[in-house]
């Protein structure tokens, strides 16, 4: 009836030339940046091109990749998971608590405990309809407290020579096993997103909640599964970090890592508003962020500048996303 509604319905078009370039930059910038920084280090950083450095880089990157992949799913649905850092700490505390049952049992219990936090978080978000930001903030504090309470807040070392020592040091074909695991997990999630109904439902929930409901998709179950998976990944990440440092340290493990994970997601090209999921981008961004840390340490630059640089990158990534979102 009205042409006014018509123009509103079809949405705006951006000018092709400029937006094309920005689209392209937004799409591939993280991969370009990763390669560029890597090459820079090979050329300009003494001692970078060594097995030791590169393995170390991957050992540190593996848990970040895991929690960032979980975070990508949460953000893809239009939510966020702020609890992952604290869940890592809980996992680490649980390991120490159950080490007496054997190392493998302790790992399983730790990951299960982490997943349970995810079930709780996911239920609040999906069924009680509480804003993920709120549940996440609550759990961020509460789960860290829980981790410190069950462990007495102190660091306790894990006896060397067992499974944990292996996780913390083993490599296959020169690549740390934890990194292979994290990449395999990322690959599995990428497959899930691309090829399964579960991945589609997650995207629908993030893209248009009401339309997802009207299309009869099981939004609540999907959200529950995603927050559970994210927490389970954080649990595994907690095991990895504990194994690497050879100790359970609930007061320090995972501090601020939820922010690193969110940064990886955003820089990797998954928009904060949801409806798009880029696992490969997240993995590249997680590696990139870890590489920045390594670069600053090895170039002997004040580490605080690394944080400032990361902040600038996040803002740049959000800016690029803003222009891309204009196309919708």
């Amino acid at each position: 009836m009205t042409t006014q509604t018509q123009t509103r319905g079809t949405g705006r078009k951006t000018t092709p030339g400029a937006s094309h370039l920005l689209n392209w930059a937004g799409k591939y910038s993280v991969y370009l940046a990763l390669v560029a920084l890597f090459v820079f280090n090979l050329v300009a950083t003494d001692g970078f091109a060594s097995t030791f450095t590169l393995q170390n880089l991957l050992f540190s990157a593996a848990p970040i990749i895991l929690i960032a992949v979980g975070q990508t799913l949460a953000i893809g649905t239009g939510g966020i998971d702020l609890s992952v850092g604290s869940v890592m700490a809980l996992s680490s505390a649980t390991v120490a608590l159950y080490l007496g049952y054997g190392e493998v049992a302790a790992i399983i219990i730790a990951v299960a405990a982490a997943a349970l936090i995810g079930v709780f978080n996911g239920s609040l978000i999906a069924f009680a309809r509480i804003n993920p930001l709120i549940t996440g903030l609550g759990l961020l504090v509460a789960v860290r407290g829980l981790a410190q309470a069950v462990s007495g807040g102190s660091r306790s070392s894990i006896p060397p020579g067992g499974v944990f020592t292996w996780i913390g040091n083993a490599s296959f074909l020169g690549i740390p096993v934890v990194a292979l695991f994290a990449l395999a997990a990322a690959g599995a999630v990428a497959l899930l997103v691309r090829r399964t109904t579960f991945g589609r439902y997650a995207l629908f929930a993030g893209s248009n909640r009401e339309a997802a409901f009207l299309a009869g998709t099981p939004r609540n179950i999907t959200l529950l599964a995603i927050y559970t998976l994210s927490a389970a990944f954080a649990g595994i990440a907690g095991v990895m970090v504990s194994a690497r440092i050879g100790a359970s340290d609930p007061s320090f493990i995972g501090i601020n890592l939820e922010l690193t994970a969110i940064a990886a997601v955003v820089i990797g090209g998954t928009p904060l508003v949801g409806g798009r999921i880029s696992i490969l981008g997240t993995v590249a961004a997680a590696l990139f962020l870890q590489l920045i840390d390594t670069t600053f340490v090895m170039q002997d630059i004040n580490f605080a500048f690394a944080q400032v640089l990361k902040a600038i990158l996040i803002i740049a990534a959000l800016y690029l996303q803003r222009t891309r979102k204009d196309a919708r």
């Binding site: 319905g9 995207l203 629908f204 893209s207 248009n208 009401e210 339309a211 997802a212 009207l214 409806g275």
Partner: peptide, 13 residues
């Protein structure tokens, strides 16, 4: 739905 934008399409997809 009568409200194509808010209740119909998945915009980025």
């Amino acid at each position: 739905s009568e409200d194509r934008r808010n209740e119909g399409i998945f915009p980025g997809l």
